[in-house]
Design a protein around this nucleic acid. Sequence first.
DNA 1: ATCAGTGCAAAACATTTGCAGCATG
DNA 2: CATGCTGCAAATGTTTTGCACTGAT
Lengths: 161, 161
Amino acid sequence: MPQTPHPDAEQAGASVWAQRAAGRLADAGYRRGGARQAVIDLLAGQPCALSALEIEEALRASARQVARASVYRVLDELEQLKLVTRIEVGQGISRYEALHPHGAHHHHHLVCDDCGKVIPFEDEELERTIDRVARRVAFDVAGHEIVLHGSCGDCGTPDAA
Amino acid sequence: MPQTPHPDAEQAGASVWAQRAAGRLADAGYRRGGARQAVIDLLAGQPCALSALEIEEALRASARQVARASVYRVLDELEQLKLVTRIEVGQGISRYEALHPHGAHHHHHLVCDDCGKVIPFEDEELERTIDRVARRVAFDVAGHEIVLHGSCGDCGTPDAA
DNA sequence: ATCAGTGCAAAACATTTGCAGCATG
DNA sequence: CATGCTGCAAATGTTTTGCACTGAT
């Protein structure tokens, strides 16, 4: 079977995740619901974490609007089932993103302390180092979160500062 | 019990930090005030990060009580002057701890997702790896924060899962 | 027909802000 | 004695919850 190195490789991964989420939810005894599906479909297509309000806003402009409370409820369910990760990068708001099995697409975040922009990055060696530390400590480590704070190009060094 | 490596050295480091904080505040044009001093003295003696409410509570039992708003205001001032670091480890609350110059006492955190306990840890290699990543990314990195999530000894694997 | 899923509004939090009075320099 | 510092209470913003209604099975 010929490989299909589509530019939509990410799209494929997205629908794989959405399907997996649907399966896990069904297994866990959940019914299918419009709000939940809308949140899943939105998260499936995101390259990085969104806040609950960003999700609500994005859906408000979509075919299926979802009440804020439902956004939070769905995100909580998905987090429990380890289908999404919650991260906190400051400003007291939580962000959520799809969690893929086997650490696929696993990444961390650069956060601009000025404008609040969140940018993902990956690093193999960093993962290995973290894994080593995780084994070393007297603690049952289930996951990790790394945030680099600083200034993004737009804010940091405008040109001559 | 969390690591308590060298009580004496820590005490010494504590007063050094408190003095440095006093100096920096004076330089920045701040007056001396009871609330601010109480928060500084408390933070100086802590081995790990405290939340604003924990600080308020700890001070309530002390000689100098401090109103919640003042706790937040003082913490904000100290953060601006880079005398304390703010970290967010989940549950939507911020925690604050003394920040020492030259990366001394620099550490990261294990967070129990069950009971919320926060335990500090250090790792030299992890710091080196992070520094390398910080240089690699197209971003002016000013600091970093690493959180390992999981279960602490008291919560994780109580046999009767 | 049942009971999970959802929306709305109110509640529960952490955090910030306005203002009046106290205290430092 | 002017102005920064502080406490109190109210405001703000995010997240949670109670309840009635809608919709999936």
